[in-house]
Design a protein around this nucleic acid. Structure first.
Length: 591
RNA sequence: GGUCCCGUAGCUCAGCUGGAUAGAGCAUCUGCCUUCUAAGCAGACGGUCGAACGUUCGAAUCGUUCCGGGAUCACCA
């Protein structure tokens, strides 16, 4: 049953009977300091009916009290009609939740979506910014699944290009055949080390060239290392055996490193694309666009599109020498993804520095008349900044993903052990718990903020385990499970339906929140915003903890009430678990 | 300079399809473990919702302008 829908209909019928009015009725939750559950604002009617708001409110209230099966009473404050619900309304609402047996996900909606995220460069290890991307991508995928979409998670690995060559050059020059094994460093970190080495040596070269009188721009172009890197890129594209062998070797190391990190943080993909396979795609579509007159050629043979009608500029889609630019590849890979999976929607989880790029890409796809253009969405998210400013890989001012996770696990261990609640756990169980808590704290920290907002991470202050955090919600779940274990030990089972009981306010609050869960799943999907789920889970956990402090489950002498509470808290635990699952966060049985 | 995003308590953030005295967490301070996990609960303190106009019965929420911060406007990706 749906109380809100019922009540809305009853109010509409009241308006019809009393004033011969038809209008859309929206309800809002009554403010805490007033009596009632739902509030109907009557101000909009005042002008139409030329009556004072209190009079209108009272008339509707009386009508509802007489004619609505869910309304028990009302009060009118100014223009606000506060409506109280019948006791048994709450009972039947809760019973209807129990009937669903915890299945609150939506049925398949027949629609499919491909979510591309993570998309790392193989020249450096993952950092905090990548974590935000990965967690967002994973969470949005889960949220879409819960809304009935068939979801494909894809990753496009940026495994070629000048930046990869930089690491390779530096390795050739300074590497001494070092390997991850010989250096005892994860492969992605080893590649990252040489990327930084390249930059250091390159800067030296620039400095000395400038000392010899070259301008900065000239020096940057003329530095021997840069020329070597460009030459290597040429060799790579020509399939030079030595270069390709080195490339394969180093990329192999990096993938081993990435896979270890992905495994640790619980990220996986249904499909991985490699840019080395796809970077030539898109040229044929440019050709098609030229034929259709959507693109045009300039004197130097370069190909452009004019997007001034869309409020954008002219954009190059193919260089004069016939080689691709970034957007060419993206046109090609979008087509490829559509050919491979034919999804109705396509989502890119990519930072907001590429907002313009995606505006252009989508505009081009529309002009090309691609059927999938309408379903394209750029999930743009803000940067994670440090107190010192932006993170920069080359300058080493990054918060490394592996390091951060390790630190979080250490903090989780410390925080947990000092409480001494899990002394009977085996070492394996402990390690599993610390990892669960550490990732819970980290993922929640990154997901609770609206994606498009940039956020600040202060390495000096470790991520909290108290207050509005992942572990707070995990703790709430563990607390409930503890009661349920106790109940089971006492031979009590959780009822499938509840009896005729009178709920306390804090209990109707919980029932109301539980009933609203599907609305939040929908909102989260509509907004592509895991933060909606995070805030909901926090709200639910917080309300449960108030309940916990106020009322007892196992010490309740009225067995009907106790059984209701068992069912209630079990629903809360299940909902927290499902909600956190959508964020990619596990909840422990004990902590 | 053009375009886009952000600006809410000391700090980090909710709220933004317009509604009653703007909510949390952290930090500071007060209470609460002889009863289901105190990673908790209850309370205090803390706000010109960046500013000004405008629309409205009513604006943190919508519009315009301005201020502050960020991104982008590459034949880089």
């Amino acid at each position: 049953m749906n109380i809100e829908k019922q009540l809305t209909e009853d109010i509409q019928s009241a308006l019809n009977h009393l004033f011969q009015e038809e209008m859309e009725v929206t309800l809002q939750p009554t403010r805490k300091d007033f009596e009632g559950t739902y509030t109907f604002v009557v101000f909009p009617l005042v002008k139409k009916l030329r009556k004072n708001p209190v009079e209108i409110g009272n008339a509707i209230g009386e009508y509802l009290k007489e004619n609505s099966s869910v309304v028990s009473g009302f009060n009118v404050v100014q223009g606000f009609l506060n409506i109280s619900l019948q006791e048994n309304t709450w009972n039947s609402l809760f019973n209807s939740l129990l009937e669903k047996k915890g299945d609150s996900d939506f049925d398949s909606n027949g629609s499919s979506v491909l979510v591309e995220f993570s998309s790392p460069n193989t020249n450096k290890p993952l950092h905090l910014g990548h974590l935000r991307n990965n967690f967002l991508g994973h969470s949005v995928s889960e949220i879409l699944k819960a809304n009935g979409y068939a979801v494909t998670k894809a990753c496009l690995v940026n495994d070629r290009g000048i930046h990869i060559c930089k690491s390779m050059i530096a390795y050739q020059l300074f590497g001494n055949d070092e390997t991850p094994e010989s250096a005892s460093i994860k492969g992605d970190h080893l590649a990252g080390k040489y990327y930084v080495e390249f930059d250091k040596a390159y800067k030296e070269e620039i400095k000395s060239l400038m000392a010899k009188g070259q301008s900065e721009d000239e020096a940057k172009k003329n530095a021997p290392l840069m020329k070597q890197a460009q030459q290597m890129l040429q060799q790579w594209e020509n399939g030079d055996e030595e270069v390709v062998t080195l490339w394969k070797k180093m990329n192999g190391w990096v993938y081993d490193g990435f896979n270890a990190t992905y495994k640790k943080i619980g990220i996986d993909f249904d499909k991985t694309y490699y840019e080395s396979d796809t970077y030539l795609l898109g040229k044929d579509i440019v050709e098609e666009g030229l034929e259709k007159g959507i693109f045009f050629k300039k004197e130097d043979n370069s190909v452009w599109i004019d997007l001034s009608e869309e409020g954008l500029d002219e954009k190059l889609v193919l260089r004069g020498d016939g080689t691709s630019v970034y957007i060419t590849q993206d046109i090609g890979t979008t087509e490829l993804k559509f050919k491979d999976f034919g999804t109705d929607k396509s989502v890119w989880v990519v930072g907001n520095e590429q907002d313009y790029h995606f505006q252009v890409l989508f505009a081009i796809l529309k002009k090309l008349g691609r059927s999938y253009a309408e379903g394209c969405y750029h999930l743009s998210y803000g940067m994670v900044d440090l107190p010192s400013g932006k993170m920069k890989s080359r300058e080493g001012t990054v918060v490394d993903a592996d390091d951060l996770v390790s630190e979080m696990i250490a903090t989780a261990r410390e925080t947990t052990e000092e409480r001494g609640k899990i002394d009977d756990f085996s070492e394996t169980e402990k390690d599993e718990l610390f990892r669960t808590l550490a990732l819970g704290a980290l993922k929640y920290f990154l997901l609770k903020v609206e994606p498009k907002k940039r956020m600040l991470f202060n390495p000096a202050e470790s991520i909290d385990f108290q207050g509005n955090t992942g572990p707070f919600i995990q703790y709430t779940h563990a607390r409930i499970k503890s009661i349920l274990r106790k109940a089971a030990a006492d031979g009590l089972s959780v009822p499938e339906q509840i009896g005729d009981i009178k709920m306390a306010e804090i209990e109707t609050d919980l029932v109301g929140l539980l009933a609203e869960y599907p609305n939040y799943i929908q909102k989260a999907a509509n907004d592509y915003a895991p933060s909606v789920i995070a805030n909901y889970c926090y709200d639910l956990a917080k309300t449960f903890n108030s309940f916990y402090a106020e009322l007892s489950v196992m010490n309740e002498s009225d067995s009907q009430l106790r059984d209701f509470r068992l069912a209630l808290i079990e629903q809360v635990a299940a909902t927290l678990k499902k909600g956190m699952r959508l964020l990619g966060i596990d909840v422990p049985e004990r902590m």
